[in-house]
Nucleic acid binder design. Structure first.
Length: 252
DNA sequence: AAGTCGAACAACCGCCAAGGA
DNA sequence: CTCCTTGGCGGTTGTTCGACT
């Protein structure tokens, strides 16, 4: 999974490290430390640049490093800290003994970011036909996620408007029916798609999707925007989740 | 069996801030 | 004050491997 070793035009070796190189680097640092990374390769008898040596030491050879799979607790810490700090991998790594910033960053991109993205989704609600049970069933299938729909989802099509409406929230704690839904569906949405519709929102900045915290002036369970038929409504659930609810008013 | 594709991850690259000359 | 060196950080790339067709 690494680049094959090669020498650049300056005779500096790049690519995967051999066991012999690792031994040389480890041995040198254990004897002399690393007061100067630039000078270290020459002193250690390596054809690498100082930066490469530092990276190899910090991310792989350093004592007390953990390698391999992450525990659930570690993943929870990463997700939580990422929400607080953003891509400050070095700060996150400080809170996870034995893990490096590079490793955490890789793990985030290959595992956790995808999982996190699935927290943003779109709900297609037929306001005429979708029952509470159907919506609740949807909520049940999305563990630990709150579904919010407007109270007037059952109002007549001709009376629909784009004014703000009250809302009712359905959670797993409150409801537990097991109906399957034909009218409440979810699909993953991309961040780009979400941002593309951002202009319809009020009270939140355009950087909401990248900000770990939410605006203080948005109350719990607040319906931000109510859509006309065919438009997209956005609902804020009081934590850090924002749902898109399709204003689909036609029976399919 | 062979080809394709995406996930995983080690390593590289460019940029920036701090500190010393 | 300016310039240079160095270490550190975050984004990106390149290669391998396993799953799937």
């Amino acid at each position: 999974m690494v680049r094959a070793p090669f020498y650049d035009k300056n005779g500096v070796k790049k690519g995967a490290w051999s066991r012999e190189e690792d031994e040389k680097l480890r041995d040198h640092i254990e004897r002399h430390g690393h007061p100067n990374w630039r000078k270290l390769p020459k002193l250690a008898g390596l054809s690498r640049c100082g930066k490469s040596c530092r990276l190899r030491w910090m991310n792989y050879l350093r004592p007390n490093l953990k390698h391999g799979s992450y525990t659930k607790e570690e993943e929870e810490i990463i997700v939580e800290l990422h929400q607080q700090l953003g891509n400050k991998w070095s700060l996150i790594a400080e809170r996870l003994p034995g893990r490096t910033d590079n490793e955490i960053k890789n793990h985030w991109h290959s595992h956790l970011s995808k999982r996190n993205n699935t927290r943003r989704f779109e709900i297609q609600v037929n306001p005429i036909d979708a029952s509470e049970q159907e919506i609740t069933s949807y909520a049940e299938s999305h563990e630990n996620q709150r579904i919010i729909v407007s109270d007037d989802r059952s109002t007549n099509v001709s009376e629909s408007s784009s004014t703000m409406s009250t809302e009712t929230s359905y959670t797993q704690e409150n409801y537990s029916p097991s109906l399957t839904s034909n009218h409440v569906q979810s699909t993953s949405i991309s961040e780009e798609d979400s941002v593309a519709s951002w202009g319809t929102l009020e009270g939140l900045g355009s950087d909401f999707w990248t900000e770990p915290f939410i605006s203080d002036n948005v109350s719990y369970g607040h319906c931000i925007y109510r859509a006309d038929p065919g438009e997209i409504a956005y609902y804020y659930d009081g934590t850090d989740l924002l749902y898109q609810v399709m204003g689909e008013y036609q029976l399919s």
